[in-house]
Design a protein around this nucleic acid. Sequence first.
DNA 1: GTGACTTTACTTACTAAATGGTAAGTCGTC
DNA 2: GACGACTTACCATTTAGTAAGTAAAGTCAC
Lengths: 191, 191
Amino acid sequence: MAVKRDTKNQILDIAEALLQERGFHAFSYQHIASKLGVKNAAIHYHYPSKNDLAVALVARYRRRFSRWSENLAKENAAPWPCFESYIETCRYLIESNKICVLGMMAAEFNTMAEEVQREIQLLQDEVVSYFSDLLKRGQEQGEFSFLGDAAHKALVLTCQLQGAMQFAQVKGSGVYNVVVDQLRAELKPQA
Amino acid sequence: MAVKRDTKNQILDIAEALLQERGFHAFSYQHIASKLGVKNAAIHYHYPSKNDLAVALVARYRRRFSRWSENLAKENAAPWPCFESYIETCRYLIESNKICVLGMMAAEFNTMAEEVQREIQLLQDEVVSYFSDLLKRGQEQGEFSFLGDAAHKALVLTCQLQGAMQFAQVKGSGVYNVVVDQLRAELKPQA
DNA sequence: GTGACTTTACTTACTAAATGGTAAGTCGTC
DNA sequence: GACGACTTACCATTTAGTAAGTAAAGTCAC
C-alpha cells in the first residue's frame, strides 16, 4: 500500500534533490525516470508538465517547512536551539552538495512560470517570518541582541544563510562555518 | 575598426545579461545569435563550446571587477563611498532584473566544468578580499565597526549581498533596501 | 601597385542527442 | 469491467556542435 501513492512522492524526492544539486533547468524527466527505474512517461503521468512538477515541489517544501517550524513552536523550544536547528539542517544540505530550494529558486526566479513564482514568494515569506518570530522571541528573552527591527534582521539573516550555502558549494563547507560563527557572535548579547 | 573585435565582446555582453537574468542553463546559443542578429554558428566560431563561453564570461567579469576595485584603490576613496559604490552597482543589477554573476554561478556551481569552477572560485576570492581590505581599512580609520576578523566579516557581507540580490528578484527591490539599511546600521560605529 | 595567397569572420546546411510532451495500449487490482 | 499506474511508441522542437563554403580584408613577393 505504501508502494502506490509513493511513486508520486518519490518523484518529488528525486526532483528536489536534483533541483538542489543542479538547478531546475539542469535536470530532465529522463534523469528522474532513470533514477526511479521507471519510464519517462510515468513522470508525465503524475506531473503532466515540468511546471506542475515545480509547483508541487515548492508547495511540498513549503508544507514541510511549515510543519517543521510549527513543531518547534509547539515544543516551545528555546531561541538558541531553534536557531541551531536551522543551522544544522542547512549544514546537512551543504554536505550533500545541495543548497536550499529557496535559494536555488530565487536565483532562477525569472525563468519560472507565475504559478511557481507565487509559491516561491510564499516560501520566502514563511522562512523570513519564521526568523522574524524567532528573533523577536529571543530578543524579548534576552537571548539575542541585534540592531533595529526583528523583521528586517530576519531578512538579512535569511539572505546571509542562503548566500552561505551557495558559497559553500564554491569553496567548501569551511565558508559555512565561518559565516555561522560570525552570526552567532553577532547575535549574542553584550557584544 | 571597432566593429571587428567587437562581436566577440558583444557575444559576452549578451551572454552575461542572459546569465544574470536567467542562469547558464536557461539560455542557448540561439538566444545570443538572434539578439546579435547573427547565425548560431557565428557564436561557435568565437566560442566553440558553451564551456568556453562560460570560462571567458567569468574571466572577463573577474578582470572588470579587478580594474574596478583597483581604480577605487588608486583614487584612495574613503571607506563609506567604496561601500556605497558597490551597493549602487548591485542596485543597478536588481533594477535590470539581474543578479550578480558570482551569485548565479555559485547556485549553478555543481553543473559547471572544472575550468569554469576554478574561475568562479577566483572571482569569489577577489570579491571577498575586496571587502576584507575595505573593512580593515574602514575599521582602522574608525569608519566601520564590527565584531571579529575583517576577513570573516567580509565573507558574511558578500553572502548577505548575494542573497539580497536574489531575494530582490523574488519580492522586489524593497527587500534590497531593507537589507542594505540594516547592513549600514550594523557597520556604523557606536551602535 | 598588382596578382596570389592566407586569414578572418562569418553563413548555409547539416547532425546526433536530448528535451518536454502525447496517445494508445497493457496489466493487475478493487 | 472500470480504474489506476504505468509502458511502448511516438512527436516536434531545441540543444550544442560541425563541416564546408564564401566574401572581404590583410599580407607580401614582385
